[in-house]
């Protein structure tokens, strides 16, 4: 892929990711401090389209820019998002390269990523808020919630993957159409 095309696509994906994150910020949060994580649609798509490095870059750009706008830079939500996001990118990248398209499909990858993300966010929350240990009682709820959002993200990425391969003319390493 040419360099310019790659840069533009990455910037565009980062921009879309910011927009998804911001729109999500307007929605009421079901569990305090935790988020739907719909912007991980872009993270997963970038992971399939480019690879871990680019996905991580998009994710970091998205987190910093949107936190600046929302006014949550260095707030608890920021760290939950950042910590959970790092783990989720490496986790999904690892799953992809180990399974190499076998076993789990895109939806499976997305769901397991979201689930792990939720778990990591809870652990970070526990470390940051020793006094609010009762939020652990919300763990089961947020885990099930993560399965649901992971499912939605996975389905969206499933279609994006197909569209990307047909319209943008790239060949997926793991999930060719």
């Amino acid at each position: 892929m040419e360099k310019e095309r790659k840069i533009v696509t990455i910037s565009l994906l980062a921009g879309i990711s910011v927009v998804i994150y911001l729109i999500e910020s307007f929605l009421p949060s079901p569990v305090p401090w935790l988020r739907y994580g719909f912007s991980h649609i872009i993270t997963l798509f970038a992971l399939l389209f480019f690879g871990p490095k680019e996905a991580l870059l998009i994710f970091i750009v998205r987190t910093v820019i949107s936190s600046l706008i929302v006014g949550r830079l260095f707030s608890p939500t920021f760290f939950f998002g950042l910590g959970g996001g790092f783990v989720v990118v490496f986790f999904m990248a690892g799953l992809l390269s180990i399974l190499d398209g076998r076993g789990l499909g895109i939806v499976g990858i997305s769901v397991s990523g979201a689930w792990v993300n939720s778990l990591v966010q809870m652990l970070i929350a526990a470390m940051l808020f020793a006094r609010h240990r009762e939020i652990f009682l919300l763990l089961p709820v947020s885990l099930i919630f993560a399965v649901a959002t992971g499912l939605i993200n996975g389905i969206v990425v499933y279609y994006l993957n197909g569209y990307g391969q047909r319209a943008l003319g790239y060949k997926s390493r793991y999930f060719p159409v």
Binding site: G103, L104, G105, G108, V111, W115, P140, L143, I155
Partner: peptide, 20 residues
């Protein structure tokens, strides 16, 4: 859209979440 393992994984994760 869903592979066999996707379905198994989703059910397993829901069970694990509830069991927590």
């Amino acid at each position: 859209m869903f592979t066999k393992w996707d379905k198994i994984l989703i059910i397993a994760l829901i069970v694990a979440s509830a069991a927590s």
